[in-house]
């Protein structure tokens, strides 16, 4: 399997994500944000955490308009598997790949600790990885992680099984305790917690490893269509 990790100025979880991808058996290429096209034949794309463009204007706003992001959105549009973590989730929302917005934490503090999540879906690779209802522990580290969307959108996400993870004990004020959401086809996941920081016992936990294993299994079973 071949995976790409998008790199913006200010990305700082890119190498952690690449390492988690490699650990799941993938060959990894780093993708610079100024490129206009993706290398052909990628099975998975990851958008990592960090502080792309210094969080200027809004978190993820400038990164979302980078040339490469147009290609990433197009890749998702033809059924490709994409995971966006933390700042990567913010970038995805700003790029319109997933609905809603991430706002300043309700408590105004940067929250950096390991939290308990409930797997809230049986869909897509998160459902495959854990099964609905399972509890997992992953680190969060963010200042702008309060997920917000209008009531209609939240109802739709819940109704379609697209809320992937919920916080047990809400660390940031997210609507309906939402920690991560899926696209309509279940192949694009955006989440605030960091599964790539929980793939090795040395990191204090390994609950993230199953997510990457399931991601690559899903991408192998249902690859993206070739570009038109």
């Amino acid at each position: 399997m071949r995976a790409g990790v998008v790199v913006f100025p200010g990305s700082n979880c890119d190498r952690d994500l690449a390492r988690a991808f490699r650990r799941a058996g993938a060959r990894v290429e780093m993708l610079w944000h100024k490129e206009a096209a993706l290398p052909p034949g990628l099975d998975v794309i990851g958008i990592p955490g960090g502080f792309s463009f210094g969080d200027y204007l809004r978190c993820g706003a400038i990164a979302a308009r980078a040339p490469l992001m147009r290609a990433v959105a197009e890749y998702a549009g033809r059924g490709g598997h994409v995971i966006g973590i933390c700042n990567g989730f913010q970038v995805m929302l700003e790029a319109g790949m997933l609905p809603g917005a991430l706002m300043r934490n309700a408590g105004l503090k940067f929250v950096c600790r390991t939290v308990t999540l409930e797997v809230a879906t049986d869909r897509g690779f998160p459902g495959e990885a854990y099964g609905k209802g399972r509890e997992i522990r992953l680190p969060v580290a963010h200042h702008d992680g309060s997920y917000q969307a209008d009531g209609e959108t939240l109802d739709r996400l819940e109704g379609e099984g697209r809320v992937a993870f919920r916080y047990r004990g809400n660390p940031n004020g997210s609507a309906r305790n939402i920690a991560g959401i899926l696209s309509e086809n279940g192949r694009v996941l955006g989440m605030m917690p960091h599964p790539e920081r929980a793939v090795d016992p040395l990191q204090g936990g390994t609950d993230g490893a199953a997510l990457f294993a399931a991601l690559f299994a899903a991408a192998a079973a249902e690859p993206a269509l070739r570009p038109a």
Binding site: R58, G100, M103, A149
Partner: peptide, 9 residues
């Protein structure tokens, strides 16, 4: 519309 505001919020 394209950058300066996030019209979701």
């Amino acid at each position: 519309e394209k950058l300066l505001a996030n019209t979701v919020i």
